[in-house]
């Protein structure tokens, strides 16, 4: 572990909460055209361990991308993406990408946790308006922040800011809830990291700072903390 860090403002792509991460003592490394929080000056293992209770991470710079239009599902299937018929379910691709089916005509692709897959980029490039296909790219990578809430206490924490029952007994792996959290509209996708319950939270990037503060406030009672990408890779066994 090194203590060398980068300045997120030296990159053109910046997370909507880079100041919050910086002020919390994040060590940044370059990734996805910007600076991501690798750790908070602790080893990945130590941070991962603390995530068993409750933790929050920012994945906003990782690839996430939407498609909309009435031929969306058929077109994605033709491109080799496995998308089922059921709405509000995330379909896991072989390379770890999640195809979150938000509506009959809308799919949100979110990268595998370390962003190795080029699927998002490849699909975004091929979905050109020149093709007469009604599957239109939607730049959710810019429109949506992407937070990850992890840990056993996550459902109890969410219960303070969200009216949907997110306990494991009611909200299973790869289920999606599109609902209101702290009165803002978000997409919640459950996709556990190994044994650790994990909830991807995506929503309006303009309110990222607002929700970040709400989450930290709600997490306090459970001793929740921030973790970096290193800990997430560790939890995912990568």
């Amino acid at each position: 572990m090194t203590s060398v860090t980068l300045n997120p403002a030296d990159f053109t792509r910046r997370s909507p909460v880079y100041r919050e991460l910086r002020d919390a003592g994040a060590r940044f490394v370059e990734s996805f055209g910007g600076a991501i929080a690798e750790d908070f000056m602790e080893s990945a293992e130590a941070e991962a361990k603390s995530a068993a209770g409750l933790a929050l991470a920012d994945l906003s710079l990782l690839p996430h991308f939407g498609f909309k239009g009435r031929e969306t599902v058929d077109w994605l299937r033709s491109q080799g993406v496995d998308v089922g018929d059921q709405d509000n379910v995330a379909y896991r691709q072989e390379d770890g990408v999640l195809a979150a089916k938000l509506a009959p005509r809308e799919v949100l692709l979110i990268a595998d946790i370390v962003g190795r897959s080029d699927l998002c980029a490849r699909l975004a490039d091929s979905a050109s308006i020149e093709e007469e296909v009604e599957a239109f790219p939607v730049p959710r990578g810019d429109g949506y922040f992407w937070f990850l809430v992890l840990g056993e206490s996550a459902p109890a924490m969410f219960a303070k800011i969200c009216g949907v029952d997110l306990r494991s007994s009611s909200f299973g792996e790869l289920e999606i809830a599109q609902t209101s959290v702290a009165r803002m509209n978000v997409v919640i996708v459950r996709c556990d990291l190994g044994e650790t319950p994990a909830y991807h939270v995506l929503g309006d990037v303009a309110s990222a700072s607002y929700l970040w503060a709400c989450l930290l406030d709600a997490m306090e009672e459970f001793d929740g903390r921030l973790i970096g990408h290193g800990a997430i890779r560790h939890l995912a066994g990568l």
């Binding site: 910046r14 100041r19 702290a182 009165r183 309006d204 990037v205 303009a206 309110s207 607002y210 709400c214």
Partner: peptide
């Protein structure tokens, strides 16, 4: 309870503050 009133900030919000802007509420922004 807690006050949940989503506020929307543009990506340049902090640049305005640094430049001494007086911010005003405009709808949700």
């Amino acid at each position: 309870g807690r006050v949940f009133e989503p506020v929307r900030y543009t990506p340049m919000h902090h640049r305005h503050l640094e430049a001494g802007a007086q911010m005003m509420v405009a709808g949700p922004w």
